[in-house]
């Protein structure tokens, strides 16, 4: 099997691969020599396991994610469906306002579906969403967890808010659209989650 690296991220390398007859990608977490072995091995296997589990869970609850084909905890490798679509990060700024609003609301609805089932993504950014067949697919669940607390859900959305501020700052309405979609779909009281986001903003950032 020949392997072509298509992306080298902060923690993992993504290569194109095949699983049976299907186009697949392998996400391989790389050892980091700046941290001690104990921490390194723990993080690599823990996140690989967590990511595979959360992606499978998310699928059960109707959120679009890649199909997981294989998981190797020792090597820290997940083999999954290749989503041949476009990263939201790369297209969002160039959409017209109406379409951008539609995409952002869709995003909010999917996040609410995750949160309804206590799935915390942990790194919701537009580089971790791929648009394919007019559905937003979520990837990169390695920093995620299962957690029902309002606080944790607020932190999860706060990450996205920050991502919008740093990569889509010319469209300041995006996050509001996301919240609009989120409110529609969230089964609990979305107001308390949004209040949490405001608290987090007040706590951090300004010292």
């Amino acid at each position: 099997m020949n392997k072509k690296i298509i992306y080298r991220g902060a923690e993992a390398e993504i290569c194109l691969s095949k699983y049976l007859e299907e186009k697949a990608v392998q996400k391989r977490r790389i050892q980091k020599s700046y941290r001690i072995k104990e921490i390194d091995s723990f993080l690599i296997s823990f996140r690989t396991k967590e990511e595979a589990k959360l992606i499978s869970d998310a699928r059960l609850y109707g959120v679009s994610v890649p199909i997981i084909y294989d998981v190797d905890l020792n090597e820290g490798v997940i083999t999954m469906q290749y989503l041949e679509g476009k990263r939201i990060k790369d297209i969002l700024n160039d959409l017209d306002e109406k379409e951008r609003k539609r995409i952002c609301k869709m995003m909010g609805k999917s996040i609410a579906k995750l949160h309804n089932n206590d799935i915390i993504h942990g790194d919701i950014t537009t580089s971790n969403m791929i648009l394919l067949d007019d559905k937003i697919h979520f990837i990169d669940f390695g920093l995620g967890s299962k957690n029902g607390e309002i606080e944790t859900k607020g932190v999860d959305l706060h990450v996205l808010m920050e991502a919008f501020e740093s990569t889509h700052s010319q469209h300041p309405d995006c996050f509001d659209y996301v919240l609009e979609g989120y409110k529609k779909e969230f089964s609990g009281n979305a107001g308390t989650v949004i209040k949490k986001i405001e608290d987090i903003v007040k706590r951090g950032r300004y010292r």
Binding site: I39, F42, I124, H158, V159, E162, G204
Partner: peptide
């Protein structure tokens, strides 16, 4: 001796 401690990263926070 490494004592295992919580390692908490959310996005880049």
């Amino acid at each position: 001796k490494y004592l295992k401690l919580p390692y908490s990263i959310k996005g880049m926070d």
